[in-house]
Simulated scan of single mutants.
Amino acid sequence: MSSQKRQKKKNNTDNQTAKNSRFLITITVLGSAGPIRFVVKEDDLVAGVIDTALKSYARGGRLPVLGSDANKFLLYCANAGSDALNPLESIGSRGGRNFVLCKKQTHPTMTEGRPEIIGRKGSGSWKAWLNKSLSFKISSH
C-alpha cells in the first residue's frame, strides 16, 4: 500500500472516530440522592439520552420513582443558560458534560383540574382553599 493511500485511509478513520467520539456524562436528577453517569456518543439524540438515563435510574432502584416516559422530562445543560435541550439535537452539540434531568411541569386543564375554582372570583380566598385542600383528617383511637 502506498503512503498516499495509507494517509487517506488514516484520515477517513480519524474522521469516523471524530464523528463517533464517546464521552462520559453526568446527569443529576432533581430529588434524587446522587447523579447518574454513563457513556454516550457525541451524535446521540437528547431524547435517547433521557431514555437511557431513566432506564439506568430505574435499574438502580432509585427513589423517587420517575417512570419510563422520556416525553415527560426535560434535560438541561448544567453549565449553560436556562433553556432545555431540544430532544432532537445531539447531546454533544452544546459541549456540556454535566446535565440536570427534570420532570416537565404540567398545568391542569379544565377537565383535569378543579373547575369550581375558576369563576369563583372574590368568593373565599386562595389561602382558605389551600388549607382545606391540604388538611388531613386524623382520627383518634
Rank of each mutant, 00 (worst) to 15 (best):
A33T: 12
A70H: 14
D44C: 01
A47H: 05
L85S: 00
L130F: 14
V65S: 15
C102Q: 04
L54I: 08
I91L: 00
A58V: 03
T109S: 12
L30C: 08
C102W: 07
S125A: 01
L88Y: 12
I118M: 09
T111A: 15
S139L: 12
N98T: 11
T17D: 09
S135A: 05
N98M: 15
I27E: 02
F23C: 01
R94V: 03
G113W: 02
A128Q: 14
T52A: 01
R97D: 13
S21F: 13
L85G: 00
D83H: 09
D14T: 15
N86D: 13
K41W: 11
N15W: 13
D83W: 09
P35Y: 05
C77T: 02
V49P: 00
Y57G: 03
A78I: 05
I36S: 10
S93N: 10
K121L: 09
F23D: 03
S93C: 08
K55E: 06
A70E: 13
Y57F: 04
I36M: 08
L66V: 02
L74P: 02
N131E: 13
R6S: 09
Q7H: 08
R62F: 01
L45A: 05
N71Q: 13
T13N: 11
G60P: 06
Y57K: 05
T28Y: 12
P64W: 03
L45I: 07
S21T: 08
A128D: 13
T106D: 12
I138L: 11
Q7M: 10
C102L: 07
K137H: 04
E112G: 01
Y57Q: 06
A53I: 00
I36R: 04
